[in-house]
């Protein structure tokens, strides 16, 4: 499991490679929080293009980061959801509070 970070116009962009389950979610959470603390950003944008599997542990991870971003007056955006991830996303109701985009550019311009 690898995470690549970048910062663009006040957004922390996070690309996770691998699967999000209970086991990996603990590491992901820890790493993301550390990076978010370090950076002067409001929003977190998740690039899901390399996530082939996510279970409800991933919902917990996103909800937790949503709270962190909210504390700074920011939001969470996601893009490039694979079909399995999208189904978990919809069923959890996450799509009601987290905006889904088709691309990074769309996410950045919408989250301004």
């Amino acid at each position: 499991m690898d995470i690549i970070y970048s910062v663009k116009r006040g957004n922390l962009i996070v690309k996770i490679y691998g699967e999000i389950d209970h086991h990996t979610s603990e590491t992901i959470r820890e790493k993301l929080d550390k990076e978010f603390k370090k950076q002067n950003v409001k929003n977190i944008i998740f690039d899901f293009s390399e996530i082939q599997f996510m279970d409800s542990s991933g919902i917990g991870v996103i909800m937790g980061r949503y709270k962190n971003a909210k504390e700074r007056g920011g939001k969470i955006g996601v893009f490039n959801l694979q079909p399995q991830v999208e189904r978990v996303f919809k069923l959890s109701g996450l799509h009601k509070i987290i905006n889904q985009y088709n691309s990074l550019d769309e996410a950045i311009s919408s989250l301004q």
Partner: peptide, 15 residues
């Protein structure tokens, strides 16, 4: 406290 979503059984029932 573990930041769990509470959606485990709902996922099983849906899928």
């Amino acid at each position: 406290e573990l930041e769990r979503s509470g959606m485990g059984f709902t996922v099983m029932e849906t899928f």
